[in-house]
Design a binder for these strands. Structure first.
Length: 263
DNA sequence: ATGGTTGAATGTCAA
């Protein structure tokens, strides 16, 4: 079974709804993970997605954050929040069991600035994620971790690594925190398939003409354990949505996997 | 230099 999955930080699912619906019609992924939906659950535009044949699982809050998974087939199970006894006040984590594969969709805290307490909360979020993976899975099992991880892993993942070194999103402590989760058992599917490419997924609104000048960051990711990394056929970034009128500041990343038999 | 723009909200925060 060929499986197409995608991740897209939409920066407001209601503001981006026509764009997301058109994108789904064009690309027809088996599942699409959304971040920064910025909508309470009772206002999530579920019907618009169902009209296109997608099931919607979501966890939102007022004004900020919010994650959702849209899927062609209904998820067998859904986890909203970590459920580990820690705080669940921010809507940043949802996981679904789809076609026998668990997919964790995360909106990692941005961190604001390395001197800000939010930065420590960002580092702690990675630790919490690793504990969730380790408590529920083995690295030998098929598992996807995707979303806006808000970290560029390597120098080739930012437009100016010398200038940006030590800034939020490209700070050594964040790269280490991400690397520790990866070391549990994940591969970065984009980097696996494209070892040299300088391909970004985010271009800041606040930098004049950042998209036209390609002043971007690769901070949206699709990570997979070994059996799914071996099953990965292709990974790519669709930059077109970032060039539309009133775009999100992010653009989608997609992957195609040949799911192992029986998954 | 510490700017700039956007969404959700209708203050101003978070990114």
């Amino acid at each position: 079974m060929i499986w197409k999955l995608a991740t897209f930080n939409v920066n407001g699912v209601r503001a981006r709804l026509p764009q997301v619906l058109a994108w789904l019609g064009r690309h027809s992924p088996d599942l699409l993970c959304l971040q920064e939906t910025k909508v309470q659950d009772q206002d999530f535009p579920r019907q618009d997605f169902e009209n296109l044949g997608y099931h919607a699982a979501f966890l939102g809050q007022k004004s900020y954050n919010g994650v959702a998974v849209l899927s062609r087939r209904p998820p067998g199970q859904v986890r909203r929040g970590f459920g580990d006894g820690g705080g669940e006040d921010e809507a940043r984590f949802i996981a679904v069991l789809l076609d026998g594969v668990w997919v964790a969709n995360t909106y990692v805290p941005q961190g604001r600035d390395p001197s800000n307490p939010a930065f420590q909360a960002k580092l702690a979020f990675f630790d919490r994620l690793e504990r969730w993976f380790a408590a529920n899975f083995q690295p030998s099992q098929p598992l996807i971790w995707t979303g806006d991880l808000n970290v560029a892993p390597e120098a080739q993942d930012v437009y100016d690594p010398q200038r940006l070194e030590g800034q939020v999103g490209f700070h050594p402590l964040e790269r280490q925190a991400l690397a520790r989760v990866m070391a549990w058992g994940f591969s970065d599917l984009f980097r696996l398939r494209h070892p040299q490419d300088k391909q970004f997924t985010f271009w800041d609104y606040r930098l004049p003409k950042s998209f036209q000048r390609n002043l971007g960051w690769r901070i949206d990711h699709i990570m997979a354990t070994a059996p799914l990394a071996a099953a990965c056929r292709e990974v790519w970034v669709d930059s077109a949505p970032r060039g539309l009128e009133k775009p999100s500041d992010h653009t989608p990343m997609l992957a195609e996997l040949e799911l192992p038999g029986g998954a």
